[in-house]
Design a protein around this nucleic acid. Structure first.
Length: 532
DNA sequence: TGGGCTTGCGCC
DNA sequence: AAAGGGCGCAAGCCCA
């Protein structure tokens, strides 16, 4: 049963489904929530990110919620309107404000109870109410997990991190100074180019310098430089790689983001149009392999690292009802299954071809093998082609559970219409939008599967009565991969949970569709030792 | 000096 | 090897 949590000038009110209200002081909320949690309610509140941290800090964990802000954003996407704002003002702040505290929004949020009523009506009126309700529940469960993972943090050894920085860059330099290894590499580049000073940190100036030295480059991209045969390229590429490590995940990053052996990023559920999460600060979803040796389980604990194998092609197989592709994915390696089906000759062709089909690749190897994939897996390929054509026509597309792509930018529709008097469906802009919608249906539905997986793992792992950090708990989530920090005597149970939750997510979304969602699991001390 | 833009690159 | 989709972030650069 739902319990609405709402802010009142005189405190916080809990509203039961029959409309009865219980008014409590804001500081009594954790105790009240803990007591009612025994009934396994769904807590309905404006914004998990605003309400839940204080509860967690007080040691109170909740099983289920409905996040009005996140669900409104989904509904707004369906309706083609701007999401409501000002939710933050409804948080349990001590001044009782109902307005956004930063003054950015003059529109007061509705009361949580009214917004809940509106959303229930809206969900029920949807053509696929069960799917949309599932999406709302999964999105909200993700919001809980995001706050919990922020609170517990990812185990991070500052000593290991510092050691690997020192090993590759040299000792930590004074603030603003260049590490010894970078200085040496920059000097080596200048020696080998032999044109005097090289502005190695400025891409445009670097391109000009390289051209002065007789190298035919048009950009400073590593991918382009790699194709050039010149002795200065090797130290230059090494410089770029180490410089990136230093600026993005060097000592400054370590100082700013790692405290008490934990990295605590802020996850942003629903932060990407497709429904994927984004992150805010610390680059949490782009942790480079170079620093993963610093992600180390506590003594007596393990990292259980789980990765959904070839998630997106499997999602496409299930979405499109492509039985042949489902068969190809019967085992853990779908790409090998595609080779075994005879569609293509090598695993690399299978992989590049499928990625091209889902991303809209039009050149090179992916385009070459696409016709063969289309013959072998006609429904899968037709599904993404249809999504691309819809986008080119300016139509919006939907994920399985109903998340809807935005309308094309005005520039796209107007620029074309002004020339021909009708919408452009063939120009470069239309094709680019088609690539977006093509990918949206697959990436977005994969994000829904991943949320269902995450929610299942969270629910199955949790043992009530002991603190979250004392039992196996989620510490990291990135699109199709989960890490559980786990006492070593619980790794077997945790692995089983990760696998069974994946199968359950498949059933939740796709029912009895014959598509499997295998998970590769590594049990390691260090993240860098996980296969993947 | 600070904001916004571009470039480049890390991840999935 | 790169290309196609989605991001966040740091640095350089331009302009007010």
């Amino acid at each position: 049963m739902p319990i609405v949590v709402d802010r009142r000038p005189e405190g916080v009110v809990l509203i039961d489904d029959d409309g009865s209200e219980t008014l409590i002081a804001a500081d009594a909320l954790p105790a009240a929530v803990a007591e009612r949690e025994a009934e396994h309610p769904r807590w309905v509140w404006t914004d998990t990110a605003q309400w839940y941290p204080a509860l967690l800090a007080a040691g109170v964990r909740v099983e289920r919620c409905h996040d009005l802000r996140l669900v409104d954003a989904i509904i707004a996407g369906i309706d083609g309107r701007v999401p409501r704002r000002g939710w933050a003002g409804a948080a349990p702040t001590d001044d009782g404000a109902l307005f956004a505290l930063d003054g950015t929004d003059a529109v007061p949020p509705r009361s949580a109870a009214r917004e809940w009523a509106r959303q229930q009506q809206r969900l029920a009126a949807h053509p696929e109410p069960a799917r949309l309700a599932l999406l709302a529940a999964a999105e909200s469960a993700g919001a809980l997990a995001a706050i919990e993972m922020h609170a517990t943090g990812l185990p991070w050894s500052a000593a290991e991190h510092d050691a690997l920085l020192t090993a590759t860059l040299g000792p930590r330099p004074a603030a603003g100074a260049r590490p010894a290894a970078l200085a040496a590499l920059a000097a080596e580049v200048e020696r080998r180019l032999d044109i005097g000073a090289v502005p190695i940190d400025s891409p445009p100036a670097l391109v000009a310098a390289l051209r002065r030295a007789g190298l035919a480059v048009t950009s400073a991209r590593s991918s382009e430089l790699r194709r050039i045969d010149h002795p200065a390229i090797e130290p230059l590429l090494q410089y770029k790689s180490l410089s990136r490590l230093h600026t993005a995940n060097g000592w400054n990053w370590l100082d700013e983001w790692v405290r008490d052996g934990r990295f605590r990023p802020t996850y942003v559920p629903g932060g990407v149009v497709t429904g994927r999460w984004a992150s805010d600060g610390g680059g949490a979803l782009q942790l480079p392999r170079q620093v993963r040796p610093a992600i180390v389980a506590d003594p007596g604990w393990r990292l259980v690292v789980a990765d959904a194998a070839q998630l997106e092609p499997r999602i496409l197989a299930a979405l499109s009802g492509d039985a042949a592709m489902a068969r190809a994915g019967a085992d853990v390696d779908l790409y090998a299954g595609i080779v075994a089906s005879g569609a293509v000759a090598t695993r690399e062709q299978a992989k590049v071809g499928m990625l091209g089909a889902m991303y809209g690749g039009t050149t090179g190897a992916s385009a070459q093998v696409l016709p063969r994939l289309a013959r072998a897996f006609p429904r899968a390929i037709a599904h993404v082609e249809a999504a691309a054509r819809a986008g080119e026509r300016g139509e919006r597309v939907r994920t399985l559970l109903g998340r809807t792509s935005p309308a094309p930018t005005r520039r796209l529709s107007d620029a074309a219409a002004s020339e021909t008097g009708r919408p452009d469906t063939t120009g470069p802009a239309a094709r680019a939008w088609g690539r977006f919608t093509r990918n949206f249906v697959v990436q977005g539905t994969a994000a829904e599967w991943a949320l269902a997986w995450l929610a299942g793992v969270r629910r199955q792992l949790w043992t009530a009565g002991s603190p979250l950090a004392a039992q196996p708990h989620l510490v990291f989530f990135v699109h199709d991969e989960l890490i559980v920090h786990c006492p070593e005597n619980e790794v077997a149970r945790t692995e089983a949970v990760l696998r069974s939750a994946a199968a359950e997510a498949g059933r939740l979304l796709f029912g009895d569709a014959p598509v499997s969602f295998p998970v590769s699991v590594s049990i390691v001390q260090r993240y860098s030792d996980a296969k993947g």
